[in-house]
Design a binder for these strands. Structure first.
Length: 616
RNA sequence: GCCUCGAUAGCUCAGCCUGGUAGAGCGAACGCCUCGUAAGCGUUAGGCCGCGGGAUCGAAUCCCGCUCGAGGCUCCA
């Protein structure tokens, strides 16, 4: 049971509306009490009569100290995240009400939304909180949970000239998505009434689906989805390796009782999957940090080796997000995360690296087909870091080219002093982070990562945590949400050409041209272009339609004319035109548009009659 | 955790209010058509109406419970 106890001059509350089935039957009239102790109470799972008695005796004892005899029991759910069932809670409230003979006890109605006006006295004992359990072991609340509730954020918008504006004074006229982001982050307004449109598309395009036999948020990827994922993974990995990242692979599960993990969890409790195995308490990683830090600890490092960049594509990272937060590909419990850490010798080097990685992230996001207008940047830092590094922050915001949402903390609570993200804003105005980088001043020590400096002294590095793309699944979500927007606004949806599961479809007018189509497909395949053939004996109209609904970028219809001529009529999805090109022109055009992007083979049979129908 | 909604053919859904032989489109199989840039035609197969109970002569339909799923909310306590 959680109790927040306030000694008040007065409280006035009004039941507004019944909120749950168990709401008690009362006349919803306002009630005012003066000179009263108000106990806001959340009854938790496992609470019983003993707890009720204990709570009442503790409350009455403390009321004696402040010399007050009037008590209001006020049901208040927000104090706990593991509430008892309403029926249990209600009966415990009634029990508590009846327990005390000396006190004048009033109870606020249970199950109602209530408005209230409260005036709390200012003396030292006026405000206290208690956690009461049936006995045995009291719940261990980590420092982090306590601290997190105290953390206070100050929100601003920084314009590209480095000026900070209060959020409510900023003119969002040309920055609607930034306004969405600011509202989403700074306020608690997150309610929408429809599922995001990418969910339907991810099924319809046979990319991914829920797997009921697994846990929620663990998706299955069909051939199309697997291909798109592979391409994105390859692209991001290549970019990070160009930047200097060394790719490694580390375990997906770790011992919760390893000292570094214990220290980490104590400070940053997370929702992780736990597995008991042979007496060990293992957990599934929610980031690549663990494996990479433990690896870096075992390296012998000199300052000459820094910055040291380790990279891993985690397939998967696991986070046991609350079931209600999981939606399509936006937020998953198992996700694929490119994660690149850089161990830097000091803040100067960290800042230099930070700049490079910002540029890398911008480039990667662009390469993935996400435009500047699709995302908004947020940057977060401690006040101290801001005062000492104004120019770095202002320069970064300037590079972004558009105003940025700022969150500033008075004190450092997290392990980082600076963090930024690009937030994709979807069709419902919901924001989710893609690229991100952080400057971490704490984990070098926690994981005993050391390098030897110029003076032969061991030092802990500053660590940057960068994902240039964000979770790969989330990138697909962003692309699908963009496609949904195109559909809504009357444009043809499409994937970037390099990600299209099939880039070219060849359709014979009659079966007698099928063999020619196959030869042509063979030739195009030789240039590492994904091409397939509609070998079904369907009408041309039907085949075109099916190719269009598959978002195929180029459609070739082959008949008598083509078999004997050089030029082909090619339906180009992007321009919407049918144009006359030779096959070499087409190949050149595709190669030009997919330059610098990874190449992969078709992930389904070339003949579409051989493919299973994926009906989901 | 809590709330809401949902579960009928492989898929999307109708039927439920007002109880009386299980419906459509797509997809699949088979056949006809041999076709020039977004759906050619026909035939056939395919159902424990999520599970369990109740009331009823009779339940996909009404009542109760459960399971699973989706979405939303951490608002409610």
């Amino acid at each position: 049971m959680r109790i927040l106890q306030l000694h008040c001059d007065s409280i006035e509350f009004t039941p507004v509306k019944k909120e749950i089935e168990y709401a008690e039957e009362i006349e919803p009239t306002a009630k005012k009490l003066e000179e009263v102790v108000v106990a806001f109470i959340a009854v938790e799972d496992g609470d019983n009569s003993t707890v009720a008695k204990k709570a009442m005796s503790e409350i009455s004892e403390s009321m004696k100290k402040v010399g007050c005899n009037r008590l209001l029991l006020y049901p208040y759910a927000h104090l706990s995240s593991k509430l008892a069932s309403p029926s249990t809670a209600f009966s415990i409230f009634k029990e508590m009400e009846s327990l005390s003979k000396e006190l004048e006890v009033t109870r606020a109605p249970f199950g109602w939304t209530k408005s209230f006006k409260i005036h709390v006295k200012g003396h030292p004992l006026a405000e206290t909180s208690k956690t009461i359990t049936a006995g045995e072991k009291d719940e261990i609340t980590s420092d982090a949970v306590k601290a997190e509730s105290k953390i206070e954020s100050f929100w601003y918008i920084m314009s590209t000239d480095g000026k900070m504006h209060k959020v409510n004074e900023f003119d969002f006229a040309n920055h609607q998505n930034l306004e969405f982001l600011a509202k989403y982050e700074a306020s608690k307004k997150r309610s929408v009434d429809a599922p995001p449109p990418h969910v339907k598309l991810m099924k319809k395009m046979a990319i991914a689906d829920y797997e009921p036999a697994s846990d929620s948020g663990n998706m299955r990827f069909f051939p199309n989805g697997r291909l798109i994922k592979s391409l994105i993974e390859r692209y991001v990995s290549d970019k990070i390796m160009d930047y200097g990242g060394m790719e490694v692979e580390t375990p997906i599960m770790y011992d919760s009782h390893h000292p570094s993990m214990e220290s980490y969890f104590h400070r940053f409790p997370a929702r992780q999957y736990n597995i008991d195995s042979e007496g060990k308490k293992l957990f599934l990683r929610f980031a690549a940090c663990f494996g990479q830090f433990l690896m870096a600890k075992d390296f012998q490092l000199s300052y000459k080796n820094l910055p040291l960049k380790l990279y891993e594509l985690t397939r998967y990272s696991f986070r046991k997000e609350q079931s209600g937060e999981l939606v399509g590909l936006r937020r998953l419990r198992a996700f694929t995360m490119p994660d690149c850490h850089a161990m830097c010798k000091d803040m100067e080097q960290a800042k230099e690296e930070f700049r490079k990685r910002f540029d890398l992230s911008k480039e990667v996001i662009k390469g993935l087909g996400i435009d500047e207008s699709d995302y908004e940047m947020a940057i977060r830092f401690t006040e101290e870091f801001y005062n000492e590094n104004k120019s770095l922050i202002e320069e970064t915001v300037k590079k972004n080219g558009r105003p940025v949402l700022v969150e500033m903390w008075k004190e450092r609570f997290f392990y980082f002093v600076l963090k930024w993200e690009f937030n994709f804003v979807d069709n419902l105005g919901k924001a989710s982070a893609l690229s991100t980088d952080q400057i971490d001043v704490e984990n070098g020590k926690r994981y005993n990562i050391e390098y030897i400096d110029e003076n032969n002294k061991p030092q802990n590095p500053i660590i940057l945590h960068n994902s240039p793309s964000g979770a790969v699944e989330r990138v697909i979500y962003a692309l699908l949400e963009k496609a949904a927007k195109d559909i809504r606004e009357g444009r043809k949806p499409q994937f970037p050409l390099w990600l299209a599961p099939s880039q070219v479809r060849i359709i014979p007018v009659k079966p007698e041209y099928l063999q020619y189509c196959e030869q042509l497909a063979e030739k195009i395949t030789g240039f590492e272009i994904r091409v397939d053939v509609d070998d079904r004996n369907e009408s041309v109209g039907k085949s075109i339609r099916d190719a269009e609904t598959d978002w195929i970028p180029y459609i070739l219809v082959i008949g008598e004319k083509e078999v004997s001529a050089e030029k082909f009529s090619i339906r180009d999805r992007k321009s919407g035109n049918v144009k006359e090109l030779t096959i070499d022109d087409l190949i050149n055009e595709i190669k030009e548009q997919t330059k610098g992007k990874p190449l992969m083979k078709l992930n389904m049979d070339r003949d579409i009659s051989k493919r299973p129908q994926i009906m989901v």
